[in-house]
Design a protein around this nucleic acid. Structure first.
Lengths: 229, 229, 229, 229
DNA sequence: AATGAATGAGCCTTCATTCAT
DNA sequence: GATGAATGAAGGCTCATTCAT
């Protein structure tokens, strides 16, 4: 028997998955089309046949895994919109971490690589897909800070929250890939339960946000007092 | 006359600086020896002549700019070891941000790229150089949490602090490089004053750390009460 | 319903016409099967299915357009065989130019390309088809030069006539395709009327042929005189 | 011994000559860099090292052989500017034919291929180099036609002359390359002496030009007569 | 009869590295 | 000590052709 005749979409899909894995592991430049095709069990020309170019496959592969991971882990973390705002923040944080922590997706690696070392191919796509999710977090933070919070305070707090989410997961993945570090005792790695990290970040951040709120309210009060005199 | 007789170390130095800049901008794989040599005004063979290989130059260049930036911006932020622990945390945070925010150094870019997309050449070196600094932060955090804090709490808090530092500066750099994003209004970029970001992170983190401390103290109290019964 | 049931020859014909156009525009090597098939609204495999190979289609397409153009523009230019020999030459010249000047045929382009850059696929076919026409011109020229003309004189004059015909039309086509040449004022292009060019070539050539005849007659006379002595 | 160290221009020159030969024989598209490099005794990467790209080498090679051939065969054919106008035309014609007939140059082949099948890389260069030479011919023809000749008459006659030159040489080269044509008896090939062809074209063309002149003078006379009435 | 998914061979180009000078 | 000419290995991409359907 020579070959199974597929419906033509099967190979395409295998290429997408293979590409995501290899790109995640090696990054765009160190990855060769041959790498991907071999893993997908396809010919070297398959990339160009199905996607036109390596560049394009890169974008398609990212979109593919990103969208799949978002479908699998809804960004609200399953928390009802009617829940207390603190719970909604916890939901968002946990959802993010479960999504990027899912060993089946290579979402985070590619994104991280691309942010650090932009090829210019993916930057725009990432922003378009990720920004809406980040904005949702901003809304929650705005609610926590109160209406009178300045834009800057909201953005700073958003940065604080997202940086912790991103940073912790990057560190976790990184440690997992090189678990043989001598004298390395990174609890973030051993802590398999993502939920614990999410809880920490939530606790830490709620306190941080409250502190920011108190500061500007205090400052505003002081301003008012001065004006009243 | 053919050429100025340099002492032979000058070219070497120019190569280091050129390499750091180009590696920072393009990353290891997109950078070619020719790029570096042209910028350094040196011959194509100069890299291999002076450093043996591109790989080695990569490592040497990183060490060069890292050590220079550390000398320029002492990691304690100029805060005396006798100062209150909160101030020492603020000093550490500010020092980090001033160091990586220094436009003369390309420290952060290379490190970020390398962390996201390890070439395997630099990872070890970075860890060896950066870990001591991170450990110093851990010590401060340990002090803030109290002696009875668990290792995990310390590590979690350290992650929270460092992630914010790293994340905010990455975002800042990134936004600076592409300031023409449509509808982009990133205050982290416009905020030229690194000190404001450092202040925010300090405020946010001190509150976060305190919350973590309160939680485990409360839990311990509860445990004690239960045992006393 | 999937598709109009064509009689299977329709696709073949569409391929021939598409091929002729594309080959004429891009030449054999820059033309891809995909180009042709897309233009013909056919499948990628259609070329090999209908013609066995790209090579063969190339030959078939040329024959197709050549024969069609010859049918459309009879090579005698509509001049009766009984007409004066000068008129018969004018007829031949005009017929050639009308044939290759016909915007519906891509005869000339392919032939020109093939003559300049023989693929080896078409040379023989072209010669077989074109030679008889050229020979007819030779006959007329022989008649103009008289029976005592040498083969060489006939061939030289034939070359002179055909070169003008070919050269003028090539130049005309070429100028038509790039009419935006700066400071280009080629009257051969603007002169839409092919007949004027044909008239010029006829006038020019009749005079040339007569001059050749006079020369060898004069020479022969001199030879005779010398022999008679 | 490993290798002769050349001054770096030697290889470059060998590449130029090899390129001209191969491009002349096979045309741009059928020629591969490997072909050229093998013939030049250089590495596959040599083309890109010395010329940046195949495209660029193509242009450089053409310029190289064109300029060399023009230097070797001055376009006036060695005829003094004070010589009779007929002789100057003969000189131009002969010079052209000697130049492109020189077996050491591959000028004509490349030019012909490029005219028939423009790559778009060379067209402009050719025009810039060749046009001045063609213009010189126009000047001579203008002188032969007299001052009152129209632009169109000049251009038509120029076309007639140049087409014969070009056409005869193309046919000659072509026949030389395939001398085994069955039943082929092309005197243009066997006629090794280019001078005979040049003489024919000169004779033919001088008569043709005179005929053109007589026609428009006669026509003008007729117009004048009609006006006088 | 006709399709289109898939392939393999080959091309241009890049680039780190070497070597004679 | 330093150069730059030259190379070999490899990568992305194109395209005519094949084959199961």
């Amino acid at each position: 028997m020579k070959k199974q005749r597929t419906d033509g979409q099967e190979t395409r899909q295998r290429l997408l998955e293979a590409a995501a894995e290899v790109f995640a592991k090696k990054g765009f430049w160190e990855t060769t089309n041959a790498d991907i095709c071999k893993r997908a069990g396809a010919n070297t020309a398959a990339v160009n046949y199905h996607f036109g170019s390596k560049d394009n496959l890169y974008v398609e592969a990212w979109k593919y895994v990103f969208e799949r991971s978002v479908r699998k882990h809804p960004p609200d973390g399953g928390v009802s919109p009617d829940a207390p705002v603190e719970e909604r923040l916890r939901g968002r944080i946990l959802a993010f971490m479960q999504r990027v922590g899912d060993p089946e997706t290579s979402d985070l690696e590619i994104t991280h690589k691309e942010m650090a070392n932009p090829t210019g191919l993916l930057t725009e796509t990432i922003r378009k897909c990720v920004k809406p999710l980040d904005d949702k977090v901003s809304v929650v933070i705005q609610e926590l800070l109160g209406e009178s919070a300045s834009d800057m305070d909201v953005q700073f707090c958003q940065m604080s929250v997202l940086s912790q989410c991103f940073g912790s997961m990057v560190r976790r993945r990184h440690a997992k890939m090189a678990p043989d570090m001598p004298g390395e005792d990174d609890l973030l790695t051993n802590t398999i339960d993502v939920k614990m990290i999410a809880d920490h970040i939530t606790l830490f951040s709620l306190a941080g946000i409250r502190a920011v709120r108190e500061r500007f309210e205090m400052k505003r009060q002081a301003d008012n007092d001065r004006q009243q005199e």
